[in-house]
Simulated scan of single mutants.
Amino acid sequence: MCRLIIILLLLLILIVGYLWWKPTAGGSNSEVLPVLLWHGMGDTCCLPFSLGAFMELIVAQTKGTYVRSVEIGGNMVMDWESGFFIHPNEQVDYVCKQLLADEKMAKGYNAIGFSQGGQFLRAVAQRCPQPPMRTLITFGGQHQGVFGLPSCPTLSVEACAYISRLLTSAAYATAVQEQLVQATYWHDPLMENNYRRGSTFLADINNELYLNVFYTENLNKLKKFVMVKFLNDTVVQPKDSQWFEFYTSGQDKVIQPLKDSKVYENLGLNKMQRDGKLVFLGVEGDHLSISKAWFIQNIVPLLLEK
């Protein structure tokens, strides 16, 4: 009964959100680059207590720039489901096509990804250079993947437990990779070869399958790549993945510095750092605990840059 009530409440919220909140906002100020947002797992494009609030804040702080929030499938129910069940490659392809069709994005845009939306937007930057992404900002993005879901945002504790068991036992099975989004960026440091061979998303965009020069070149076209890590994160494990770091291969205790990892060179992050394009920001708090004041002070100036 409790689960049914929660599901009904969610559906009610989605219906209200669909009626009152749209995936685009602003548009009157052409002097500021448009902004693309991509939500995280368990969220949708435009709810007033999540990305809808960020859309409203960005429009206000930029005096009306165009803001588009990714809505997979054209409705909020499918958009919510996409966070769990639609493969990231399919989602990225969908978003790239949407961007090409959006005339307001044609001259370029800034992008902000929340949680898994961060690595999804990085895939957009690497795979779809047109229209050009200028600055990529990720909040709690899992750029080196996750190894554990200690506190996952779903409808129930049982769902979290089921997803965790599935990832631990069979993350790289073809069926799991195809049907569970979180499996595509599950990074097992104890079985690196299985990860590289079995990951159908993260290993590819991190150039761990083979060196894709196209990915490296496109990522280096960014003016800035800003990574925000939540210093008290209880959702992303390890939280260092938010700064593109991960466990040293073969164990799950010691974090390998970014400069010592293969991805640092293979993805051209070394060149981006030499060019001053990499920005690492830390904020106190749990996953996606972003205050309005912090966002205005640290993120809005990046959006206003010419």
Rank of each mutant, 00 (worst) to 15 (best):
I5W: 09
I7C: 08
L11Q: 01
L11A: 06
L12W: 05
I15Q: 07
I15W: 08
V16I: 13
W21Y: 13
G26W: 04
G27V: 03
G27Q: 01
S28C: 02
P34A: 12
L36A: 09
L37D: 10
G40P: 10
D43T: 05
L47A: 08
S50H: 13
L51T: 00
F54P: 07
L57N: 01
I58D: 04
V59H: 10
A60Y: 10
Q61F: 02
Q61A: 05
K63G: 02
G64M: 01
T65S: 14
Y66S: 01
V67E: 00
R68P: 00
R68Q: 04
V70F: 08
I72M: 01
G73M: 00
W80H: 11
S82E: 04
G83Q: 01
F84N: 08
P88Q: 06
P88L: 11
Q91L: 04
V92K: 02
K97P: 10
Q98R: 06
A101E: 11
D102C: 04
M105T: 02
G108E: 05
Y109I: 15
Y109T: 14
I112C: 13
G113Q: 02
S115D: 06
G117H: 07
G118R: 00
G118H: 00
F120S: 10
R122E: 05
A125P: 12
Q126L: 13
Q126T: 00
R127C: 03
P129Q: 02
P132N: 06
M133W: 07
L136Q: 00
L136K: 02
I137Q: 08
G141R: 03
G141E: 11
H143T: 02
Q144G: 13
Q144P: 09
G145R: 00
S151R: 12
S151W: 02
L155Q: 10
S156A: 14
A161N: 12
A161G: 10
R165Q: 14
L166H: 03
T168W: 09
A170G: 11
A173Q: 14
T174H: 09
E178H: 15
E178C: 15
Q179I: 02
Q182M: 14
Y185R: 14
H187W: 03
H187F: 06
D188Y: 00
N193S: 14
N193V: 15
S199I: 02
F201C: 13
L202G: 12
L202P: 15
E208W: 08
E208Y: 06
L209S: 12
N212T: 02
T216S: 09
N218K: 04
L222C: 02
L222N: 01
K223W: 03
V226H: 04
K229S: 06
K229A: 10
F230A: 14
T234L: 05
Q237C: 10
P238W: 08
K239V: 13
D240N: 15
W243C: 06
Y247G: 11
S249F: 05
G250Q: 10
Q251M: 15
V254E: 14
V254D: 14
P257E: 08
D260T: 04
S261L: 15
S261K: 12
K262M: 14
K262D: 14
Y264I: 15
Y264T: 14
E265Y: 01
E265F: 00
N266E: 11
N266T: 11
L267T: 15
G276K: 08
K277W: 08
K277Y: 07
K277S: 08
V279N: 04
V279K: 03
G282I: 12
E284P: 11
E284H: 05
S289P: 09
S291H: 08
A293Y: 12
L302F: 15
L304R: 11
L304P: 12
K306I: 03
K306S: 07
